[in-house]
C-alpha cells in the first residue's frame, strides 16, 4: 500500500472513531430516559410534588421538582466523571485546564449555562407542561442550530452530504414524536411556558455544542466535559436552589431526604448514563465536528423509544417505526461519506 492510501485509511479510521463516539452518546442518552422517567415516582420526589402542588399549584410544583432532579442529576454525573478522569489519570490535566480560565475553561463554564439550566431544565419544563413527546420534538432541532453556529463562529466545514444526513435524521425524529406531540397539544389547555421550555432545550443544546467546540480546540474532551459539569453543579447548588429555598419552597428539606438507597440507586444510574453520554458527545466533536456529532447524537430519539419499549413496555406506534427507519437512513447517509481526503474539519 502506498502512502496516499495509508493516509486515506488513517483519516477514515479517525472519522469512524468519531462516529462511534457519537453513536455511543445516542445509545446512552436513550437509556437515560429510563432513570429520568422513574425518578419522578421515587421518594422523596413524588411527595415533594404533592406537597408543593398543595400550596403553589401543579405548574410550580413541576418546575421546582424538575430543578431538584436536574441538580441531583448533575451531582451524580460529576461523581461519575471524576472517577472516569481519575481512572484515565487526567486529574492533573484537569487542574491545569481549570487554571486557564480566560483562554480556555471559561468556554466550558459558558457551555454549562446553556446546556444545564437552559437546555436540561427547559426540557423538563416542556415535559411537565406539555409532555415528553413535545419536549423530544423540540430538542431534535438542536443540531441545525449547532451546525449553523459552528460554521459562523469558526468556519466548521459541513459537506452537503452531512447536511442531508442531519436533515433526514431530524425528519425521522419528528416522525417518531410528532404524533404524540400533536395529541399532547390538542389535549388543550396548554401553557406558553411549555413552549418556552422546548425552545430553551433546542437553543441551549445547539449553543452549548458550538461553544464547547471552541473550548475543545485547546482542551482534552474528558477534562472539558468535567469542567462543564462542575459549572452546572455550581449553577444549581450555589445559585438556583438557594433562590428557590429563599422563595419559600421546601427544596432543601426534600434534598436532604433524597439520600435513600432507592433514590441514590436511580440517580446513580442516571448519572452514569448521562455522564458518559456527554463524554462521548464531547469526544466526537474534535473528530467529526459539531454538526455531525450532534446529527448522529440525535439518534437518541430512536434509542429512547427502543429502550422505553424494552424496559418499560411503552409500545411504539407505527409512525415511530417509519421515523426510526428514517433516522437510521440519515446516519448511513452521513457515515458512508468518503472521508479519506478530509484531513481537517475547518476551512483554511
Amino acid at each position: 500500500m502506498d502512502i496516499r492510501e495509508l493516509k486515506k485509511l488513517e483519516n477514515k479510521r479517525k472519522m469512524n472513531k468519531g462516529y462511534m463516539w457519537a453513536l455511543f452518546c445516542a445509545i446512552l442518552w436513550g437509556i437515560w430516559y429510563i432513570p429520568g422517567t422513574i425518578i419522578w415516582a421515587v421518594p422523596p420526589f413524588d411527595a415533594m410534588w404533592v406537597d408543593i402542588d398543595a400550596t403553589h399549584g401543579g405548574s410550580m410544583a413541576t418546575i421546582v421538582v424538575a430543578l431538584l432532579i436536574s441538580a441531583f442529576n448533575a451531582l451524580t454525573v460529576i461523581v461519575a466523571l471524576l472517577i472516569w478522569n481519575a481512572y484515565l489519570g487526567k486529574l492533573p490535566e484537569m487542574k491545569r485546564t481549570l487554571k486557564e480560565f480566560h483562554p480556555c475553561s471559561k468556554w466550558f463554564f459558558l457551555a454549562s449555562i446553556f446546556g444545564g439550566p437552559i437546555a436540561i431544565l427547559g426540557s423538563f419544563i416542556a415535559i411537565g407542561f406539555i409532555g415528553a413527546g413535545f419536549a423530544a420534538v423540540a430538542a431534535l432541532t438542536y443540531p441545525v442550530i449547532g451546525s449553523i453556529l459552528a460554521r459562523q463562529w469558526y468556519g466548521e466545514q459541513i459537506s452537503k452530504r452531512a447536511w442531508m444526513g442531519i436533515l433526514v435524521i431530524i425528519v425521522g425524529g419528528l416522525t417518531i414524536f410528532v404524533g404524540g406531540a400533536i395529541a399532547e397539544i390538542s389535549a388543550g389547555n396548554l401553557s406558553y411556558i411549555g413552549y418556552i421550555g422546548g425552545l430553551m432545550a433546542a437553543l441551549g443544546w445547539g449553543i452549548e455544542g458550538a461553544i464547547a467546540g471552541k473550548g475543545l480546540d485547546i482542551a482534552e474532551p474528558d477534562v472539558g466535559i468535567t469542567i462543564r459539569f462542575l459549572g452546572e453543579n455550581l449553577l444549581y447548588w450555589v445559585i438556583l436552589i438557594p433562590i428557590a429555598a429563599l422563595a419559600g419552597y421546601p427544596i432543601l428539606e426534600y434534598a436532604l431526604q433524597a439520600f435513600t438507597p432507592l433514590a441514590i440507586l436511580v440517580l446513580g444510574f442516571a448519572g452514569i448514563t448521562f455522564g458518559f453520554c456527554y463524554v462521548c458527545w464531547y469526544k466526537s466533536f474534535p473528530l467529526i465536528g459539531v454538526g455531525r456529532g450532534q446529527g448522529i447524537g440525535n439518534l437518541y430519539g430512536l434509542c429512547a423509544v427502543i429502550f422505553m419499549y424494552l424496559f418499560m413496555a411503552q409500545v411504539p406506534a407505527w409512525t415511530v417505526l417509519v421515523g426510526g427507519a428514517l433516522c437510521v437512513l440519515g446516519s448511513f447517509v452521513m457515515i458512508s461519506e468518503e472521508t479519506g481526503e478530509m484531513e481537517s474539519l475547518r476551512g483554511e
Binding site: I3, L6, L88, D217, P286, E343, S344, R346, G347
Partner: peptide, 22 residues
C-alpha cells in the same frame, strides 16, 4: 493520549500534515 491530542489539533485545522512516512 498525547498523539491523539495532536490528531485532534490537526482535525481542528490548527496543525497541517506536510509529510508522512511509514
Amino acid at each position: 493520549s498525547i498523539n491523539f491530542d495532536i490528531l485532534e489539533l490537526a482535525s481542528g485545522g490548527m496543525l497541517r500534515s506536510v509529510q508522512s512516512k511509514v
